[in-house]
Write a protein that binds this DNA or RNA. Structure first.
Lengths: 227, 227
DNA sequence: TGCACATTGTACCGGCTGGTTAATTCAGTC
DNA sequence: GACTGAATTAACCAGCCGGTACAATGTGCA
């Protein structure tokens, strides 16, 4: 165990922060794989560098652990989103980039998607209890609001389509693309989930979102035909 | 117990078919509510008109029961879809109707959505085993294919957007609208889930789908502005 | 009626699983 | 180097829960 101590104390042989982190990471994978009731504390403990007792020591009980995993999942994903820089782009390009980024970002974080699916199965009961998550998500739509403001100021965007609604549509496609891959591909084949298929979906999502956001007379389409 | 016997034999006092049906209905509700590992056989038996013994008699084990519930869920929903009649409508109107219907239909069947969510959590492992479901779903896209054929023949529809992709986009929004209601509304409020909000989403979904399917020069938009 | 088979009730079990008890080690402090 | 609180270990437990054994009863048929 030659990890560098992750906590604030240095030269500390025991590593509480590292243990917590290790438990959280393993638990996230297990909950994402098996759900709240499907995950086994013993299995989580087994895959940890520490023991079952430590899980209860740091997280109280199974639901407490799940709650922290949920928070951690949101924290990781929202943090990743912050890195996207859009202010230097004109509104239409910014919206296009945001949609493409969201589509790819969700695709890169299937465990997050699965945790959110599981949380929805539980009617958002645990998310309900977390103030941290509400704070984290408060900023989730700010980029889009800024884009919409600029777009409207430039006379490009409709004003009867709200940022929230745009966010909903972008999220729906990006989320569904991961969450329902198993059943959809089983029923209709894998075509849409190949590299080519995914690019097609993404591009068409962008077209749809732009078609929705832009005033009809400002639409940059036809995508690649006469215009 | 004055149900009429549902089986093939008449004048039969015992009612195996009815018992099966009763178990399936209760189990579907329980699995939808709690997931596969979360649902309790004892609880299901309790809410049934019969006993736990009968569940094992008819369905073998818990997973067998879940598999049949999954089939039944698909059967109910796909059967309900059959009732939609679109052949008498011109292609654009037919597509609009199909999208609106799908949106509403999913909204009316939250338990089906939840079962599909749960099945996706399990990577579609049980759906994988069911030939019945594959057959049921084979026809799920035929209406859309017919619409697209007519639309292309009339010179209205693009030919680089497949029926499968249109189905994917319509499904994504309609599914997400139910599946992620809990977390989305907790984070962003209920505005989109009021009657008004839902109508707005549905109308904008239609706009997006039509914008995607139609050739640019044939788009009937601007939605309600000059044009 | 008596036979063969389908259906059902009762009582039970084994081990999995979330959670705990209590003793032990570790690191800093005086 | 004894004291203290935080961190850790190992053994243990109660009851839940999926599943079963077996007897009993219902049903059509000859």
């Amino acid at each position: 165990m030659d990890d560098k101590p992750a906590g604030t104390r240095s030269g500390w042989k025991q590593d509480p922060a590292g243990v917590r982190k290790n438990i959280l990471a393993v638990a996230m994978a297990e909950f994402a794989a098996n759900g709240l009731s499907g995950a086994r504390i013993d299995d989580i403990a087994e895959k940890t560098n520490t023991s079952k007792r430590m899980i209860y020591y740091y997280f109280g009980d199974k639901e407490g652990l799940y709650g922290r995993v949920l928070e951690e999942a949101y924290r990781q994903v929202r943090t990743g989103e912050q890195e996207l820089e859009l202010d230097h782009l004109p509104p239409v390009e910014a919206l296009r980039s945001l949609a493409e980024f969201t589509f790819d970002h969700h695709s890169r974080h299937p465990d997050f998607i699965r945790i959110v699916m599981i949380e929805n199965i539980h009617h958002g009961a645990y998310l309900e209890k977390s103030e941290l998550i509400r704070l984290l998500n408060a900023g989730a739509i700010q980029k889009l609001e800024a884009i919409c403001r600029r777009g409207r100021e430039a006379g490009l965007f409709r004003d009867d389509v709200t940022p929230l609604e745009l966010h909903w549509h972008i999220s729906a496609s990006s989320f569904f693309n991961v969450s329902n891959r198993a059943t959809f591909s089983r029923i209709f084949g894998n075509a849409l989930f190949s590299g080519e298929g995914q690019n097609g979906l993404k591009q068409h999502l962008v077209e749809m979102v732009l078609a929705l956001a832009l005033k009809p007379e400002r639409r940059p389409f036809p995508s690649r035909r006469a215009g």
